[in-house]
């Protein structure tokens, strides 16, 4: 099912707030836990207690240093999972139709039963959002927790991706981008939500909120009155104290 739908009814995805993410990796592990135990092959680990441990993860948190022209270097924690692109190259390259984009909500999924593990979709994804599981031999990727968000066995409030539910600092938001009034659409509008690698033409659904300006030592003149001395010496200060107390 390798064609992309011309359009999808809804556009579900995540907003990731780079101004708020503290880089705690909570989303990484809850994703691993949920997706290991639930739909599809478990996310396996090789040499887990050995010299060269590695495993499959659907969400990973990088960190970057940004050196502005003036001021100190900044550090940005940067979680990354599948962006559920509208123009998903990972889907069109798939020879088996295992990769597909759902027409109802735009979620990009792998049908593990059809996947031959050729790896081409991972090559086609610019974001490193797909990982071939070494034990199962099939491609794994973020499912946007499709087995949670509609799951009637979960309480309504829990029908949200595992990573969003767990994020302690509320840096991850889930919603429908096709609805301009949704929380995620609003966040994107208000905070200048951006695409990663727009030049790749993938039209990612997930958006990133840029860090707010930092270390911006604004004009302190408005603050100056707050530091006008009341007296030049301790004795004078005590005099001021006496007067000030009378006013209370």
């Amino acid at each position: 099912m390798t064609d992309l739908p011309k359009s999808t009814t809804r556009k579900l995805g995540l907003v990731i707030d780079l101004d708020t993410c503290v880089g705690c990796h909570a989303c990484v592990i809850s994703c691993k836990g949920w997706n290991t135990e639930n739909d599809g092959a478990p996310l396996s680990d090789q040499d887990p207690y050995g010299a060269d441990p590695s495993g499959t993860f659907l969400n990973r948190v990088h960190s970057y240093e940004v050196q502005p022209d003036t001021g100190p270097a900044q550090l940005v924690h940067f979680p990354k999972s599948c962006l559920h692109c509208e123009n998903a190259p990972c889907v069109t390259v798939c020879p088996t139709g295992a990769s597909y984009k759902r027409v109802e909500d735009g979620i990009v999924l792998v049908n593990e039963k059809d996947c031959i593990g050729c790896g081409l979709c991972a090559w086609a994804c610019p974001y490193g959002a797909r990982e071939l599981d070494a034990a199962a031999g099939v491609m794994k990727k973020c499912t946007l927790c499709v087995d949670r968000i509609y799951n009637e066995n979960l309480p309504e409030e829990d029908r949200t991706p595992a990573c969003v539910r767990t994020c302690p600092s509320n840096a991850r938001h889930f919603g429908d981008f096709s609805d301009p009034e949704s929380h995620v659409s609003q966040l994107v509008r208000d905070r200048g939500g951006m695409d990663l690698m727009p030049e790749q033409g993938t039209l990612p659904v997930n958006k990133y909120l840029p860090p707010r300006p930092k270390d911006d030592w604004a004009d302190s003149s408005v603050l100056a009155p707050f530091l006008t001395p009341v007296a030049d010496e301790p004795r004078g200060f005590l005099g001021w104290l006496d007067k000030a107390l009378d006013k209370i």
């Binding site: 592990i29 809850s30 836990g33």
Partner: peptide
């Protein structure tokens, strides 16, 4: 034990869980 997630009603974490907590399994 199959999966561990935060307890939404709990006064400390109100449902969220850190990486260590999720890896408790």
């Amino acid at each position: 034990v199959a999966y561990i997630e935060g307890n939404r009603d709990h006064p400390i974490n109100k449902g969220v869980l850190c990486a260590k907590g999720s890896a408790g399994i």
